[in-house]
């Protein structure tokens, strides 16, 4: 069973442990500016929303990549950026309508959530279980994809 990130904003306290864990996992430093998951704070609603790539079925980034640098990981289903292939053209960053693949100036490459190979660091770090990694069926993945679909101009085959 494929697993995916399940985010429950109502449990998020805004501690940013997820952002630190992400940057440490991927960059070896505590640097939230480089985190692939981002917590948005809606102060006057009293709401904090962790937000990252949903590994959407449409894979806009993957389709837009001109050099085949983004591929699907067979084990996790994650769309993964192969840094050795990425040329840093940033086309994926404007193609992804969710804003979840971003250019990193230091490396001259793009980055996105890769589910840490199946053991997401943000999940381990989250103290309130606002971010969990569970069987895809349980995650409301369809719900997430549904809103993904709102911006979708891409085809869905009826065949």
């Amino acid at each position: 069973m494929q697993k995916s990130l399940h985010i429950d904003p109502s449990k998020c306290t805004g501690c940013l442990q997820c952002e630190m864990a992400c940057s440490y996992e991927n960059h070896g430093v505590f640097n939230i500016a480089k985190s692939r998951i981002k917590v948005f704070n809606f102060e006057h609603e009293g709401r904090k929303v962790p937000y990252t790539c949903t590994q959407c079925a449409e894979a806009w980034c993957l389709n837009a990549c001109p050099v085949d640098a983004i591929r699907i990981d067979a084990a996790t289903g994650a769309k993964i950026v192969h840094e050795d292939v990425c040329v840093g053209c940033k086309v994926c960053t404007i193609a992804c309508p969710f804003g979840t693949i971003n250019y990193v100036a230091d490396s001259g490459k793009v980055q996105k959530c890769d589910l840490c190979g199946g053991d997401p660091a943000c999940v381990t770090a989250c103290p309130t279980a606002a971010i969990t990694y569970v069987d895809a069926d349980w995650t409301g993945l369809d719900k997430m994809r549904q809103w993904a679909g709102k911006t979708n101009t891409q085809p869905r085959a009826s065949a």
Binding site: W60, T93, I94, A95, C96, P97, G99, N102, K150, T151
Partner: peptide, 16 residues
């Protein structure tokens, strides 16, 4: 600006 620029597409294309 490089962070989250894709969301501009999302907002435009989703006619949100």
């Amino acid at each position: 600006r490089t962070d989250h620029v894709g969301a501009l597409r999302g907002l435009v294309q989703g006619r949100m």
